[in-house]
Amino acid sequence: MTDLIPMAALGATPVRASFGPLTLTEEEGLTLVSLALPVGFDASVTEVPLPGPGGYAIGTTSVFWTGPNQWMIETRDLDATSRALAPLPDARTTVQSDGWVSFRITSEAGAAPLLDLVTKLVNLPADQLAPGRATRTLLHHLGCFVLRRSETEMAVLTLRSAAGSLWYVLSGAAARIAAQEAT
C-alpha cells in the first residue's frame, strides 16, 4: 500500500459532532463507483440492483439512481462489485470515492429531528425523503445527493472540495435545531 498518508475531507481525520439528538459524521471506508449503461441494457444479467428514478436500493452494497441509465454504487468491497458488474459488458464505471464527501446524519430521537433538519436544508416533498429514496438537489447553492437510509439515518453527499461549506450548513442547522429543542 502507498506510503502517502490520506486526508479526510476536512482535515487529518473525519469530523464528527453531535447536536442534541443529531449526530453528524463524515463517512469513511465507502467506495463510490458511478455506473452508466448504454440504452437498452439488460438488467437481469447482474446481481446489482438498479433502482428506478429517485430510488435507493440499500444493502451491503447500496445503489442509488443518479440519472437516466446512471447510478452510484456505495460499496465496501470494490472487487466483489466489479465481479457483480462483469456480466454487463458495456458498463462504464468510474471510481468516485474522492469526488464526494458524505456526511452521515443520525437521530437518537426518531425521525422528527432528522425531518426538521432536512426541512431547513432542501426543498423536497416528504415522499422524496422517505427511506429508500435518493435525490440530487440544491443545498446551499451546492449540488448534493440526499440519501434516506432509514427512519433515523440519512446521508448528504456533495463535491469533496465543498465539504467545508456543507459542514457549515449542516452543523449550523443541526445546532439551531438542538438549541430550539432545548428551549
Binding site: P53, G54, N123, Q128, T137, L138
Partner: peptide, 11 residues
Amino acid sequence: PLLGPRDAQEF
C-alpha cells in the same frame, strides 16, 4: 417526467 414536480431553482 421522471422525478415529479421540482423547484425551478434546480434548473
